[in-house]
Amino acid sequence: MCAVEVNKDLIKKVAANARLNLTDEELEKFVPQIKEIIVESFSKLDSIEVDEKPSFQPIELSNKFRRDEVKPSLPIEKVFSNVSKELRKENYFKGPKVL
């Protein structure tokens, strides 16, 4: 059994982990909706006993490897074709500060 209290604090914490800032309006809306989904749907799994191994895929798959060979890659201009001018500096992607 997994006891969980779905409230504003929990949803705010989860949203922050997912890099989402929720407005007050979104928070008001999401709390009861997510509570309903977790309590009425997700928690149904509390009532089933399982010893089975997990199926991370619906069919059995084995690891597939390819030869470690050098192949032609995308030309530089294609690599940057979807990048805005502001986020390209020479042949580098420009990102926000990390420190």
Binding site: C2, F42, L45, D46, I48, V50, D51, E52, K53, P54, S55, F56, P58
Partner: peptide, 15 residues
């Protein structure tokens, strides 16, 4: 309780 259990339940449902 949720993620891993759902993967185990899936095995049962496929069976």
């Amino acid at each position: 309780a949720y993620y891993l259990k759902s993967m185990r339940v899936r095995t049962k449902l496929i069976e």
